[in-house]
Computed example of a mutant assay.
Amino acid sequence: MSALALTAVGSLLAWVWLLLGQGFFWRTDQRLPPHPDPGPDAPSWPDVVVVVPARDEAAVLPDSLPSLLAQDYPGRASVVLVDDGSTDGTADVARALSEEHGGLPLDVVAPGEPADGWTGKLWALRHGIAVARGRDPRYLLLTDADIAHAPDSLRVLVASARAGGLDLVSQMARLRVTGGWERLIVPAFVYLFAQLYPFRRVNRPGARTAAAAGGCVLLDVRAVDRARIPDSVRGAVIDDVSLARAVKRSGGRIWLGLAERVDSVRPYPRLADLWRMVARSAYAQLRHSPALLVGTVAGLALVYLAPAGTLVAGAAWGDPVAAWAGGLAQAIMAGTYLPILRYYGRSPLYALLLPFTALLYLLMTVDSAVQHYRGRGAAWKGRTYARPQAAPEEG
């Protein structure tokens, strides 16, 4: 068997394993029920405080904050927006929106610059959680400043947590796919995230896999205490995964799924914008390990680039084994991508472009490592973390 054929067969075997042995990551059926609660007259709806970390978010707040203020929640709820050193008038915009729209009460607070060992978002969350705890809520909703919620979002999250006995409920917000680069890269981002952290495994009690989507995380306050959130993950750049691991390690039950009516309003119109979003934390996810980087690059090449390459080369060079194995691997790859394309309302033809998209992610990952060794680490909104953590272990 030729080296080309061996590569094609190796890729095919990898895709068979991913199809059947990686928690059915390609399924998109992990969703919260749309109406899990008995109605607005249900007794004893628990108190909730929504915590929104915000740094230079004045441009997106008009599209997101009113949706939080307008939550149709039967119990007591309020919003704490943490202005994390913004220079664009984020705090003033938030207060003006609250005066204009009314709804849930809003407080805007400022934590000051992060202390040593803290990343900016988690420092902001620490301050916001401390303010929220002063109101003695049962649940905290941690949500990003660019996330818009349907009016019943908080009700559905709380009802699902109570019905399932869950300590953490997280929905991966539907990201924007308006521009050309967004259409190409964003669905693949969710697809690859699910491949790394299969939602079914995350949601299975006793399974070690843990993850959350930081844009929408409902937390039981008792789990916050057990897991020492956010102090136990204070140095993490990939804060959502770190938070979920801490909750699960402490014995909590977690759930992660795709959102129906929780949407990101942040635009990523240029490739450079999406590149920064991925590259800022990719090497941290690999624990800054050169060996893991080499393995990841080789794995991406074998799994995503080899199928089309061996199919074309096998057909051109008269190697039927390479052509058939590469073609089958390509078919499985495209087939597993179709459900997430349907979720985002994209044409099935984008499945044929997945190898090119994967090549872009490969290059983003390499660039993340290059920036790390240049001392730039994870740069985001004017802050640079030279040696960020992926998901720190508790001491």
Rank of each mutant, 00 (worst) to 15 (best):
G103Q: 02
G89P: 01
A110K: 04
T143F: 07
A77R: 07
G120T: 14
Y139T: 02
G89V: 00
V50H: 01
G134S: 02
Y73H: 03
L65V: 04
A91F: 06
L106M: 01
V80W: 05
A130H: 14
A59H: 14
G102A: 04
E113Y: 05
T90M: 04
I147A: 11
K121G: 13
A132E: 04
V50I: 15
S86I: 02
A54R: 09
G117S: 06
P114M: 07
D107F: 00
V51I: 12
S67H: 14
A54F: 09
V52R: 09
L69Q: 03
G85W: 02
V82Q: 10
A54S: 13
V109E: 01
P62W: 12
A145M: 06
P111L: 02
A59L: 14
A130D: 15
L122H: 10
A77N: 08
L104V: 07
A59I: 10
A96F: 00
D116R: 13
E113Q: 14
A94L: 03
L97D: 04
L140H: 15
A91E: 03
D146T: 11
V52Q: 09
R55V: 12
A145K: 07
L97N: 07
A70D: 13
A124E: 10
A148H: 10
D136T: 06
D83P: 03
G120K: 15
G103N: 02
L140S: 06
G89K: 00
D136V: 02
V109S: 01
L142V: 14
G112P: 05
L104K: 05
I147E: 11
G102H: 06
S64K: 04
G128S: 12
D107R: 13
A115V: 10
V131N: 13
V60Q: 15
P66A: 05
A148P: 10
D56T: 11
G120D: 14
S86Q: 04
V82G: 07
P137F: 00
V82T: 11
P114C: 06
W118L: 08
K121R: 15
A91Q: 04
T143N: 07
A130E: 15
W118P: 08
A91K: 04
V50E: 01
G75I: 06
V60L: 15
E57T: 10
R138K: 05
T90L: 04
T90W: 05
A96P: 00
A59Q: 15
R126Y: 11
P53S: 09
W118C: 10
A91N: 03
D63E: 14
L104T: 03
P62A: 13
P114Q: 07
D107M: 01
T119H: 13
V93L: 03
S67K: 06
V60M: 14
L68G: 03
I147K: 12
H127L: 04
G75V: 08
D144P: 12
A132P: 02
A130T: 15
G75W: 08
R133G: 05
L97E: 06
D136I: 00
H127G: 08
R126F: 07
G103T: 04
E100C: 03
G85N: 02
S78I: 02
L122Q: 11
E100T: 14
A58P: 14
E100M: 07
L81V: 09
